[in-house]
Amino acid sequence: MSTMSTESAMSTESTEKPQQAKPKLAVYKFASCDGCQLQLLDACGKLMQLADRVEIAHFLEASSRVEPGPYDLGLVEGSISTAEDIERIHAIRKECRFLVTIGACATSGGIQALRNWGQIDDFLSAVYASPETISSLEKSTPIADHVPVDFELRGCPIDPGQLLELITSVVLGRRPKLPSQSVCVECKSRGTVCVAVARGVPCLGPVTQAGCGAICPAHDRECFGCYGPAEAVNLVSLTSFYEQQGAPRDKLTRLVRGINGYAQAFREESNRLEATADGGAKGRP
């Protein structure tokens, strides 16, 4: 993951001068469910406070009024799914000083990247009455596959608290303080008993980045990897142990190939699991 430069024209001093222009924020949508943008709206209590510090210049989900660019911070939701998306993201990169991807779609291709393991024409003919009217790329890919990205805010959806921390860090001109360790840290910190150890449920927590607060294990469910791979992961060791404990190979493949299945570490592991299952290798995107 790339990190944001600590250099910024928006230093603490400058924000104290009332005449100083507020940083301009733009929010963009690509192939996605809008859930991450809704998290920004959901942070409403603090959004009004945010509006005092940041000029929300381009946020179609909230207002059809659009201020012209360039923008200081661009938040991008969604994956690249059409040829038009590619052109648009290049234009957006040019008009944003900091470009931050928000959510699993933008950072790893999202759940729609499951199509990357199949044939696009098969899906089109199975789903649409007139598939010839659909113009779609063969694969759903993350924003960083197309343009340089300054920071990735993970999650499906993103956490409003993390989003505010990110925006605050841009306003104050400092590095965002966001975790990159495993979900296990959050489970242990809240006293949640490990579902993998105590229930024998294969869980992606040990290889998934923290940020959700370990919601699923706290409700007796395994981690589904919504925040993508953690900073240092060892998927082979984890899935091998689960398999040794009796978890079926195809179940593990589906677990790893989920919401962030196209993120590099998860993608490589589900491909490995599939390729080494019953000696049969399948298509590897």
Binding site: T12, Q49, S182, V185, K188, S189, P206, V207, V233, S237
Partner: peptide, 30 residues
């Protein structure tokens, strides 16, 4: 290391591990 996940569980359940990190959390106004 080929088996270790670097997931931190051993240190967090250890009754003697004492490492901590201190940080300041500011509101949006600072």
């Amino acid at each position: 290391a080929s088996r270790c996940l670097s997931c931190t569980n051993c240190t967090l359940v250890c009754p003697t591990c004492f490492c901590s990190s201190v940080g300041e959390v500011a509101d949006l106004s600072g």
